[in-house]
Design a binder for these strands. Structure first.
Ligand SMILES: [Zn+2]
Ligand SMILES: [Zn+2]
Ligand SMILES: [Zn+2]
Ligand SMILES: [Zn+2]
Ligand SMILES: [Zn+2]
Length: 656
DNA sequence: GTCAATGCCGCCCTCTGCTGGCGTGCG
DNA sequence: ACGCACGCCAGCAGAGGGCGGCATTGAC
């Protein structure tokens, strides 16, 4: 019922009709009409009847969008009649008796046979305002409860002409129809019909208003039946109309106005209805597959020349509709309109009822609505995922196919999504990539989403206070806690109760306590020497019981003196070569030796740990050389004693 | 018949944001 | 040595913008 759904305000409707009644319009329309071109096979007549008074019937409902009864002024109403176009074939086959019109259950359009015509039918003479001399005979049948015959006496009709193209099949049948005979015959028949004769029209069913017209001096007569569907019951479920425009009319003729689904041609295949026969016939073509217009470039077929032309334009790049505000151009006007809404006017006619969202296109609103409803119509056939739109499903399918359409132009890494590659390119190969700085701790994080994670992990408020591991302090933010705990880092929190010794690690205190107890639990099985710490035993074993052991030598390049410990070399260089003293560092042995060094872990003070893990090539000080396995020969008798090493030093040694 | 309006489907893009594996530094 | 924390990173989904193309319909 597409046509019936289109709202038509009564005012505008009236205006349109009145415009058509202007003198001269009819002549003009006739000249341009298919009637003349096609030989008057059929035409359309729309009739507006102005009733001085209409009878009351039915409930009070106004129907401005379906203007069967359109208030004009005072009591006057415009009755819009429907037109029925008869092809010559119809007339021929039906013998001007039964006129079978496509219909459906909901809205039957059936013309009663002439013999069984309505008992109340009347004959009216129509007079055109522009051409008062022309009169047309009208056979009109209206149920008495709607309009008694005496009322019809006061009825005045206006004729509106409309051109209608004649279908090809009608042209072919043209010779079968005697020129003008059918019209006259029918008219005569109607005229001869006694009013009292035979009307099996059932009360409460559809009523029809028949209008038959013999056109003027054109000489090309058409058979025209104009019918009006006046079924009251059918109109009762119409929506409440806007009464403001015609309160008086509504009061005077509530029933008819309330029930005004006036003029419709209904498709027997679908629900389409139209008030115009030409539209109706055009619509009927969508139900057959006839596509006579072929694209010579791709052989695609189209129903109309216009569609073909638009299509060919897509091949040729012809874009007749150019945007006035930018360089874009389009094949169709609709594309241009849409573009302008997106880019220039920002008009968004489709508003979401649940939020502020508005869109240029209806489909976008439809898609948006799914974010409210959660509807996911697009199901992946390989897993449980379902998406809200087709694109997401298509994108999702890449994880099943393994497709990675996007390749980094620099390193040729491949990605499933363009955005992922874009991030990759920016972060890996880009310059001056903006970083994200945490506002709370100044941590610099490459990705915004990772900053969000950072904020969540470190700076979110924790309802439960978190206690410091080392002191009674408590915090509601993890970052504050961590920062606080770091203040304990260099504290020598573990203090010996028997002396002044203090250290950072509990295990060091344990080792220290043995100096008080005299306990030496680690014994060398070869020489029966005992050590307080395990690591000291290990150093001893390497140095004195490992035949492959080669001690590292720290060489002063200035004087040639060598040392087994770097600290001793550094002390020496302070006197021997004070200018380069600060540059002092050490060098380890060759590649093989270095490997051993790494595995065994030379160990040292914290400040030298980094250097000691370096390779031979990483000579940082030109003034010294270290040879052999160990940068530090801590077990060397000549320069140190086991007990001279701090606990931390030894631990570091072992860590390495 | 043409044209504009409208609707619909499709395609592709961007921006956004979350997730979980990974590498690495640190305690 | 080892576990953990955390930034880095790719993967992947959500939401929306914009255009291409075609079909239908009402108006002229
Ligand atoms: Zn083509
Ligand atoms: Zn533009
Ligand atoms: Zn919304
Ligand atoms: Zn899937
Ligand atoms: Zn890359």
């Amino acid at each position: 019922m597409a046509a019936a759904e289109v709202p038509v305000l009564s005012e505008s409707f009236t205006q349109i009709k009145e415009q058509k009644l202007k003198p001269g319009d009819q002549e003009k329309e006739k000249e341009e009409s298919g009637v003349q071109r096609m030989g008057a096979q059929e035409c359309t007549v729309e009739v507006e009847a102005e009733f001085c008074q209409l009878l009351d019937a039915g409930p009070q409902k106004d129907q401005p969008e379906l203007p069967l009864w359109v208030p004009v002024d005072g009591d006057r109403q415009i009755l819009t009649l429907q037109t029925l176009h008869l092809t010559s074939q119809d007339v021929h086959l039906q013998g001007l008796g039964w006129l079978s019109v496509p219909h459906s259950e909901g809205f039957p359009v059936m013309m009663p046979q002439a013999e069984s015509f309505l008992p109340l039918s009347s004959v009216l003479w129509l007079e055109q305002e522009s051409q008062p001399s022309l009169q047309h005979c009208v056979a009109i049948s209206i149920p008495e409860e709607l309009c008694p015959p005496e009322e019809l006496e006061r009825t005045h009709f206006h004729l509106l002409w409309e051109s209608v193209p004649v279908a090809e099949e009608d042209q072919e049948l043209m010779p079968d129809l005697g020129e003008g005979t059918a019209l006259m015959k029918f008219e005569d028949k109607e005229k001869d019909q006694p009013l009292s004769e035979g009307g099996p029209d059932k009360e409460g069913e559809e009523r029809y208003l028949f209008v038959e017209v013999a056109p003027d001096n054109e000489g090309k007569d058409e058979i025209v039946l104009t019918i009006s569907h006046l079924n009251l019951e059918e109109q009762q479920d119409q929506p409440a109309p806007d009464q403001t425009s015609a309160p008086k009319a509504a009061a005077t003729k509530p029933p008819r106005k309330a029930k005004g689904k006036p003029r419709t041609f209904q498709c027997d295949v679908c629900l389409f209805t139209s008030s115009k026969f030409s539209t109706f016939t055009r619509h009927k073509k969508i139900h057959n597959d006839e596509r006579p217009h072929l694209c010579h470039l791709c052989l695609k077929a189209f129903r109309t020349v216009t569609l073909l032309r638009n299509h060919v334009n897509t091949h040729t790049g012809t874009r007749p509709y150019k945007c006035g505000d930018c360089d874009m151009a389009f094949v169709t006007s609709g594309e241009l309109v849409r573009h302008r809404r997106y880019k220039h006017t920002y008009e968004k006619p489709f508003k979401c009822s649940m939020c502020k969202y508005a869109s240029v296109e209806a489909s976008k609103l439809k898609r948006h609505i799914r974010s409210h409803t959660g509807e996911r119509p697009f199901q992946c056939y390989q897993c449980a995922y379902a998406s809200k739109d087709t694109y997401k499903l298509k994108r999702h399918m890449r994880i099943h196919s393994g497709e990675k359409p996007y390749e980094c132009p620099t390193c040729h890494a491949r990605f499933t999504q363009s955005g992922t590659m874009k991030i990759h390119v920016a972060q890996k190969h880009g310059e001056n990539v903006p970083k994200h700085v945490c506002p709370h701790c100044a941590t610099v994080i490459a990705r915004k989403s990772d900053l969000r994670v950072h904020l969540r992990n470190l700076h979110s408020h924790t309802p439960v206070e978190i206690k410091c591991r080392y002191c009674p302090a408590g915090f509601h933010e993890r970052y504050a806690l961590i920062q606080h705990q770091r203040t304990h880092k260099n504290e020598k929190r573990f203090k010996c109760k028997q002396c002044d010794y203090a250290c950072k690690q509990e295990r060091c205190l344990m080792a220290h306590m043995r100096t008080h107890t005299g306990e030496k639990p680690f014994a060398c099985l070869d020489c029966n020497k005992h050590f307080r710490q395990k690591q000291l035993l290990m150093v001893h074993l390497r140095k004195y019981h490992d035949p492959s052991f080669v001690p590292s030598v720290h060489l002063c390049l200035k004087c040639g003196k060598h040392f087994s410990r770097r600290s001793n070399l550094q002390r020496h260089r302070k006197k021997c070569d004070p200018e380069h003293e600060k540059l002092a560092t050490s060098i380890k042995g060759g590649a093989v030796q270095k490997k051993q060094t790494m595995e065994e872990g030379p160990g040292s003070d914290n400040d030298t740990a980094d250097q000691e893990s370096n390779t031979v090539k990483e000579v940082q000080c030109p003034g010294e050389l270290a040879l052999g396995h160990h940068s530090d020969d801590r077990a060397g008798k000549s320069e140190s004693q086991d007990e001279g090493l701090t606990c931390e030093m030894i631990l570091n040694m072992m860590d390495k």
